[in-house]
Design a protein around this nucleic acid. Structure first.
Lengths: 225, 225
DNA sequence: ACCTGAACACCGTTCAAGT
DNA sequence: ACCTGAACACCGTTCAAGT
């Protein structure tokens, strides 16, 4: 018997934080970040839109809760990492876990990649990264800068990728076909370098770019040690 | 006498693409990306909101026009670059020009950093970067990847920075004080690495991070040559 | 050709009211 | 305690109408 069922009316509450988060996540990922509205969420949950305000101060708190949940999942996938793993291996695993979450929940990443959730998921992830970099024995200032370099690289690339992938269908189409529509047919005069690389440019994947960026950052950190 | 004044009615049109873009830019930068609505833009221009639809298919076309304008400005600030400048110098200047535009027009960057404008500003910038990297004599595939690595690094970091800086005032306050509110007061037990670097973390600037990221990318490219 | 204004189908959030 | 429903102040966009 839950706390709720013991209350005055006797009937269980229709909503809970977990239930709201779960449905919000599904709505955002199935129909895009723009479809995550309080009204649509309410109708999905079978309640009035304003009922959600009993459990979250406002929409922003809900978005941060979704964000912290995905970071918590990324962190949970890293439980096998130990104290004595090489820092490069740890950073690669963290970057990989974020990429996986970003591919699975692009709408959430697009909504919160530039935010601070302050939640338990984020706190665990920050501690993991900071403790990994602290082992390098650099100054506090240098350690802090390299932490931000790594985190911002991971979040900004995941965020940009997620934002691009979750644009409204008509706009997404416009952007993804831009290379073949405009860049591949530019005149050689004026745009020789673009035309000379048009084929190669369209086949570069987001994952290749992400990997290169993570390796670049790790090499940069290694050079400071 | 403009084309418009020669027309049937004789009276000059109230709107032009340039006038709309200029006022939209001012509105977005003064009051944030969320304030850029067709209705508010219309009232600023002294016309009905729907009058803008004579000059732009929809709001997205307007946003892309704003975006291409800022890229064009970044490109215009690089006219002194020549054929024989060192590629590292050229990439640093391009990164710097984007950072300057992003600081001056964060609302625009937040709206379009993950987009493809396909416009003249973007085309010039793409050609400049591609031609710079083409001189390294790498394969088409490698050149294309390094192009995307550089561009995505610049745009994603500028975009994240711009997005964070242009959040609505109450949310911005919440995010910027998160470090002192939650991270600086975390218990040592459980969060030793965070607490050990709390002071250093708050003093890292976005510009430091950006510079480090650009240098990291340049070093990574240099290692491929 | 260019702009207006009503209309449609939406938003987030507040607040009084119900149970 | 928890949810409803009306209300307020907004959105982007379409379309017929005006000049």
């Amino acid at each position: 018997m839950t706390k709720a069922t013991r209350q005055a009316g006797g009937s269980a509450p229709a909503l809970s934080v977990d239930k709201i988060v779960e449905h919000a996540l599904e709505l955002a990922e199935r129909e895009g970040p723009g479809a995550l509205t309080m009204r649509r969420l309410g109708s999905r949950l079978g309640v009035d839109a304003t009922a959600v305000y009993r459990h979250f101060r406002d929409k922003d708190e809900l978005v941060l809760a979704l964000g912290d949940r995905t970071i918590a999942r990324a962190h949970a996938s890293l439980v096998d990492l130990g104290e004595h793993d090489d820092w490069r291996h740890v950073l690669r695993r963290i970057a990989e876990a974020n990429w996986e979450q970003c591919q699975a929940y692009p709408a959430v990443y697009s909504l919160m990649f530039a935010r601070v959730t302050g939640g338990p998921g984020e706190r665990s992830m920050v501690e993991l990264i900071m403790s990994t970099l602290a082992k390098l024995g650099l100054s506090q200032e240098k350690t802090a800068l390299l932490y931000r370099l790594f985190v911002d690289t991971v979040l900004s690339l995941c965020g940009m990728n997620a934002t691009a992938r979750t644009l409204p269908p008509d706009i997404l189409e416009k952007d993804t076909t831009a290379w073949s529509r405009v860049y591949a047919v530019l005149p050689h005069e004026g745009y020789p370098a673009i035309r000379g690389h048009a084929d190669a440019l369209v086949s570069v994947t987001g994952e290749q770019i992400y990997r290169a960026s993570v390796e670049s950052t790790i090499a940069y950190i290694a050079a400071q040690v």
